[in-house]
Computed example of a mutant assay.
Amino acid sequence: MTVTDTAGGSLFGLAYGDALGKPTEFRRYDQITAEYGPGGPRELPEPALVTDDTQMALAVGWALHEASAPTPEVLEPLLRARFLAWAKSPENNRAPGMTCLNACANLAAGMPWQRATVAGSKGCGANMRVTPVGLVPDYDLDTLAGIAQLQAGLTHGHPTGLAAAELTALAVRLPRDGAALAELPGLLRERCAEQRTVYRGDWLGDLWQRPGVTSPEEFIARGWDECADVLDTLIAALRRPDSGGDVCRETGEGWIAEEALASALLAALRHADDPVAALGRAAATGGDSDSIACLAGAFHGAAAGMAIWPASWADRIEYADQLATLGAAWD
């Protein structure tokens, strides 16, 4: 059977994971499991509120939806406008990341985005919002890569933030194209090798120019190498029996971009046949629980669509109307 609603499944999965991880973020693993059990939270809270992760994913999604062409000249001002609208919104009260807030303040001052970005940050803030880039069906892989890195670079200028954002978008795109979830670690690791010295200057301009960096290839290779290292750690973890514990102990706490990707994939793959269990496992971590869970939900939804999620959740999740509109546009 062909699954036709994977964009909606991915966007709603992202929001569901975000809502499940919102109450557990900043808590220790033993505190979370004492309250929810070893499998973590499995029921949406009431009300089912999300964090800045979903808010910013929607900001990216609407910028893509509004774009007349998938080019940097068209998309950069749209992304800038959506990020600034988020930054000043009264709903931006969900413990937003300081990197995003600082970069948005610079963007609001009119700085070129390559100067406005927080150059040394590879926090996961650019990862948790990139899912929509992997859902637009008309993008070829070069366009997907350029947009994923551009949206990351507006706030997170570290090369690992750029590479991890591209890999995260690809981890959404590949299941939509028919790849099995179990294939993702190997396919993403291959991408690291293929792209190691590919600097997308048409999308990034002179972002690479930093003290001590002699070429754009040297700059971007650092990001791909760090992503390759954590994917090697993930692949090794998947070869071992599942401990049943905190996935962050194997692949990192997820506060930084490459670890958020790896820990979300580990939670998703430990429960490849039970997406709700994957969300609970991802939310029951001592790391960045909401970001890890939202990505795990995005990956599962991209692979199998809306039917994998409890039907009663769709009307309860915050921003359901926006998630449904964007999902329908790309399905």
Rank of each mutant, 00 (worst) to 15 (best):
M1Q: 12
V3L: 07
V3M: 03
G8T: 14
S10Q: 08
F12H: 14
G13H: 09
G13Q: 02
P23D: 10
T24I: 09
D30V: 14
Q31T: 13
Q31K: 02
Q31S: 13
I32H: 01
T33Q: 01
E35G: 01
P38K: 01
G40D: 05
R42C: 07
P45G: 03
A48R: 07
A48K: 06
L49Y: 01
V50T: 15
D52W: 06
D53V: 09
Q55N: 07
A59S: 14
V60Y: 00
G61T: 08
W62M: 05
A63C: 04
E66I: 00
S68Q: 13
S68G: 15
A69L: 08
V74Y: 09
V74H: 14
L75Q: 10
R80T: 07
F83C: 00
W86G: 00
K88H: 13
S89M: 04
E91M: 10
N93M: 08
G97T: 09
M98K: 09
C104N: 13
N106S: 15
L107A: 12
A109C: 06
G110M: 14
P112Q: 04
P112F: 09
W113F: 15
Q114W: 08
Q114T: 15
V118D: 05
V118K: 12
V118S: 06
A119W: 10
A119K: 15
G120C: 06
K122W: 10
K122M: 07
K122P: 03
P137A: 09
Y139G: 04
Y139K: 01
D142T: 13
D142G: 07
G146S: 13
I147L: 11
I147K: 03
A148Y: 02
A148E: 00
A163N: 01
A165M: 01
A165T: 11
A165K: 01
L167M: 04
T168E: 00
T168H: 02
V172Y: 01
R173Y: 08
P175K: 03
R176L: 03
A179Q: 02
L181I: 02
L181W: 03
P185V: 05
G186A: 12
L188S: 04
T197S: 14
R200A: 12
G201P: 09
G201T: 10
D206T: 14
Q209S: 12
P211H: 11
G212C: 10
V213S: 05
E217K: 07
V230D: 02
L231N: 05
T233N: 01
T233Q: 13
T233D: 13
A236S: 13
S243Y: 00
D246F: 07
D246V: 06
V247H: 00
C248N: 10
E250N: 04
E250W: 07
W255C: 05
I256F: 13
E258K: 15
E259Y: 04
A260W: 05
A264P: 01
A268I: 02
A272I: 12
V276M: 03
V276D: 00
A277H: 07
A278Q: 09
L279A: 02
L279V: 06
G280Q: 05
A282T: 02
A283I: 02
A298I: 11
F299M: 10
F299A: 00
G301I: 08
A304T: 06
G305D: 04
G305H: 04
G305V: 11
M306E: 12
A307T: 12
I308L: 12
W309L: 04
P310Q: 09
W313L: 02
W313D: 15
R316Q: 14
E318R: 15
E318I: 11
A320S: 14
L323K: 09
G327L: 06
D331H: 06
